[in-house]
Each structure stands twice: as C-alpha cells, then as structure tokens.
C-alpha cells in the first residue's frame, strides 16, 4: 500500500478522473481516519485491519470500474495504478482463477507462516472443520476469501 502521490508531484490525470474523484476522496478520508484512529485498546495484530480493508475496497472499486463496468479508460486506469490509488499486484491476483476474491497479498504469502501454508481465510467455508467457522484472519481480518464462498 504505497501512499498516493501528492498532486503537486504527479502528472495531471487523464479524462474521466473527475467522475470518480469524489468517491476516491471518500476512500482517502476513510483511510486517514483509520490511520489516525487510536490503537491503544485493541489487540496489536488488529491495528492494521481497517487499513487493509479500505485499501482492498479501493482497489476493488477501481478494478470493477475498469474490468467489469468498463467505465474508465485504459489511460486513467494506468494513471490510477501508477499513483497508488489501487494495488496493482493485488489486482493481478484477482485475474487468476481461484483468487477472484483474495483479500490481501499477505494471506497467500506462504513463506511467512510456520507450516508454509496460506492463511485461514483462504480455506473454503465448506471445508472448515470445527465449531466456529466465523474466524477472522490475523493479517487483515478477512472472514473468508475463497472463491467458492
């Protein structure tokens, strides 16, 4: 999640940016709030959940605008990616089969886990064992992002 480039240091956006500017502003306000929220009384690992979630939502928003609704031009899409509005690596995963709903890249990073496995949120809900299937993953608070869910 690189920071969004400041407007003074970037090229002017291509056409169509004004249509989505308002929604992007809402996202960036939400992000600022999440960053400034106090994290004293929540578990340490949960402190970054809202940031991951908002980043995911914003990436998803841009992904859907370009690939599903075809609402924005290629130039604008590239410009948005370049300027950090969406996570290009995450979107690249969404295009792969089985990763359509992936919550964050950390959840498929197997090298960081003890048993070299993916995160619990990648397990399809139907295959979950045990009583409580309502788990939230440690890295981003995802409740399940398997494509069959």
């Amino acid at each position: 999640m690189p920071p969004i480039r400041p407007s003074s240091k970037r090229k002017p956006p291509p056409d169509g940016f004004s249509d989505i500017e308002e929604d992007l502003l809402i996202f960036s306000n939400k992000m600022k709030d999440a960053q400034n929220a106090p994290s004293d009384n929540i578990p340490k690992h949960q402190a970054q959940w809202p940031i991951f979630q908002i980043s995911h939502q914003r990436s998803r928003y841009i992904y859907e605008l370009y690939y599903e609704k075809e609402a924005i031009s290629k130039q604008l899409y590239d410009w948005l990616l370049k300027n950090g509005y969406a996570d290009a690596a995450l979107i690249a995963k969404w295009k792969k089969q089985g990763y359509e709903k992936l919550c964050c890249l950390r959840c498929i990073q197997t090298k960081e886990t003890n048993f070299n496995s993916t995160c619990v949120c990648r397990v399809p809900r139907a295959q979950m064992k045990g009583e409580d299937r309502e788990v939230q993953c440690v890295s981003c608070g995802c409740r399940g992002c398997a494509s069959t869910d």
């Binding site: 249509d19 929604d23 939502q57 928003y61």
Partner: peptide, 9 residues
C-alpha cells in the same frame, strides 16, 4: 445515484 460510486456507499 452516481453510477460511478460503489455499492457500499
């Protein structure tokens, strides 16, 4: 409704 805004909003 703004057709560009996400469903959540």
């Amino acid at each position: 409704i703004n057709p560009y805004s996400p469903w959540d909003t």
